[in-house]
């Protein structure tokens, strides 16, 4: 085991030596996601930050999981300054000890953060939210004329074999089981209500990636299901007959969070970057581009954007069901195993 660690750290050092060297202070390295998410982060946070400070932003593209792996490998000599991680992975990173505490006083815009958008651990604040997204009821408006009002509509016979929900391999999979279980009156010790109900669901697809869900909605293979507001409205904006609603039972939501990397090369610039990310302008830009629900108060969004935010037309961040990810992570292995045995066969 020790030799393994040695080899890993040796390759990490070799890799970091190969990484382009940037003189301290004139650039920072920020890990964020690919695709339209990365583009939006660049446009809404990266470019304004560079314009204001003259400090270049070097993106390091990867999913939350790969970024966490990088942070763990580089723990000795990090090259990243700021990391975007999804809820859930954020808690794992804190547990792994690769994050630096965030001094909110040093970040003027942090004063506007909603209470739910600040994450505190034993060593102080380890993450701040960059915006919320939810897993709501998404449907094909051509096939379903009246917008569904309840999650129970997934079990409607008319939609048999045209339904999708996330699989445990998707970041929303396990929290969705928590959500359903709570809705059906189960407790965190007894998930049988959720599994009994799911067994009777005639699903065509348990999606691993949100891209697979979008693809299935696009081809008409799926006419109703659980999908992220970001992906669903993305399809609608592309001209497809897709709608997204927050059902009466509510929606589970999570967020893309910003973290300071422990031992990162440019801590001061990193804190400034967080300040830019928490500005009202950045939040409203992300809302317009990705329909991310702002984590800071006093953000103005145009009306047509407001209706597409994770909490729906008439909600706010307080309406989102945000579970304790530590509790979710603790049950992850057990629920994945239950899912495999009961549903995925």
């Amino acid at each position: 085991m020790k030799s393994t660690a040695l080899i890993l750290s040796a390759s990490a050092i070799a890799l970091s030596a190969m990484a382009p060297a940037h003189a301290q202070g004139d650039s920072i390295t920020v890990a964020w996601y690919g695709g339209n998410w990365g583009d939006a982060f660049q446009a809404c946070i990266g470019t304004p930050f560079t314009e204001a400070t003259g400090i270049k932003v070097v993106p390091d593209i990867g999913t939350s999981t790969t970024t966490l792996a990088k942070l763990q490998q580089q723990a000795g000599a990090p090259t990243l300054d700021v990391a975007f991680l999804d809820g859930g992975i954020s808690e794992l990173a804190e547990e792994a000890g690769v994050l630096a505490p965030i001094d909110l006083k040093a970040i003027p815009n942090a004063a506007n953060l909603a209470d739910a958008a600040v994450y505190e651990g034993d060593n102080g604040v380890y993450a701040v939210s960059g915006g919320f997204y939810s897993l709501g009821l998404t449907y094909n408006t051509q096939e379903i004329s009246k917008p569904p009002a309840s999650w129970e509509d997934l079990w409607n016979d008319d939609y048999a074999f045209a339904v999708t929900i996330p699989s445990p391999s998707n970041s929303s999979g396990i929290p969705f089981i928590f959500f359903l279980n709570q809705m059906l009156g189960g407790t965190s010790d007894d998930f049988s209500p959720a599994f009994e109900k799911l067994k009777s669901l005639d699903a065509a697809l348990y999606f691993d990636s949100s891209g697979a869900a979008s693809n299935a909605f696009q081809s008409g293979e799926i006419i109703i299901g659980a999908h992220f507001n970001v992906g669903a409205w993305g399809l609608a904006d592309a001209g497809l007959p897709i709608g997204f609603v927050v059902p009466k039972e509510g929606v589970w939501a999570t967020d893309a969070r910003l973290h300071l990397v422990k031992g990162g090369p440019n801590p001061e610039a990193a804190a400034k970057f967080l300040d830019t990310a928490l500005s009202a302008e950045a939040a409203s830009c992300l809302a317009a581009n990705l329909y991310l629900g702002p984590a800071v108060k006093n953000v103005e969004v145009p009306e047509e954007v407001a209706g597409k935010l994770p909490w729906g037309e008439s909600g706010s961040v307080d309406d989102l069901l945000l579970f304790d990810w530590n509790e979710v992570n603790a049950k992850r292995a057990e629920l994945t195993d239950m899912w495999n045995r009961e549903l995925a066969r």
């Binding site: 699989s167 391999s169 065509a204 348990y206 549903l343 995925a344 066969r345």
Partner: peptide
């Protein structure tokens, strides 16, 4: 992709 998560 082709199992739709229903065959493991």
């Amino acid at each position: 992709l082709l199992s739709g998560g229903r065959v493991t």
